[in-house]
Amino acid sequence: MEQFDELELTQKIYQLLVIEEIYLQPGLTVGEFAKKLGVQARIVTQILDNLYGHSFKELTNMYRIEYAKERIEEGFLDSYTLEALGQEAGFSSRTTFFNVFKKEIGICPSEYWKKYLAQAA
């Protein structure tokens, strides 16, 4: 079995996700992510499941939705479309962005924006 340092790998995962925001790359695969970490994809899958209890896709989508929420709250939608927000957050299509947003937050992005504006007023 291939040797790797779990703590070091955990730190690298944090670095890529939180500091470098690699999840913003549209079409990012677990294979590409693993290559950046210098390990096989199955190891990344195993670590993410153990650490976060989520698959790579679930985890990147969660980070993308948090990013989108922050951008909404910063006023991104005052100047840009929801499609532009989805693209900037790393989603490859409007449909995927809307579906994942609704699954994670419980409402669609435009409803979230309206609620945010109403609370901010």
Results as ranks from 00 to 15, higher is better:
R71C: 05
I43Y: 02
G53H: 06
R42S: 10
D49N: 11
V18G: 00
L82H: 06
E74W: 06
L16D: 00
F76A: 05
G27N: 08
E66S: 14
V39P: 01
K69D: 07
S79G: 10
L16Q: 03
E21G: 06
L37Y: 02
L16W: 01
I19H: 10
D78W: 08
I13K: 00
L59K: 13
I19L: 12
Y14Q: 11
F4S: 02
I72D: 02
G53Y: 06
I22R: 05
F4M: 05
R64Q: 14
D5L: 02
Q25N: 13
T29S: 13
L51Y: 08
F76I: 02
L82I: 14
A34R: 00
D5C: 05
R42P: 00
I72A: 03
Q15S: 14
I65F: 11
L9I: 09
M62V: 15
A34K: 03
L59C: 10
K12W: 00
E6N: 05
N50V: 07
F4Y: 14
L24N: 11
K69M: 14
Y23L: 08
K57S: 15
Q46C: 07
T45N: 13
S55P: 08
R42V: 10
T29Q: 05
D49W: 06
T81E: 04
N50T: 11
K69T: 08
V39Q: 03
S79A: 11
I43W: 01
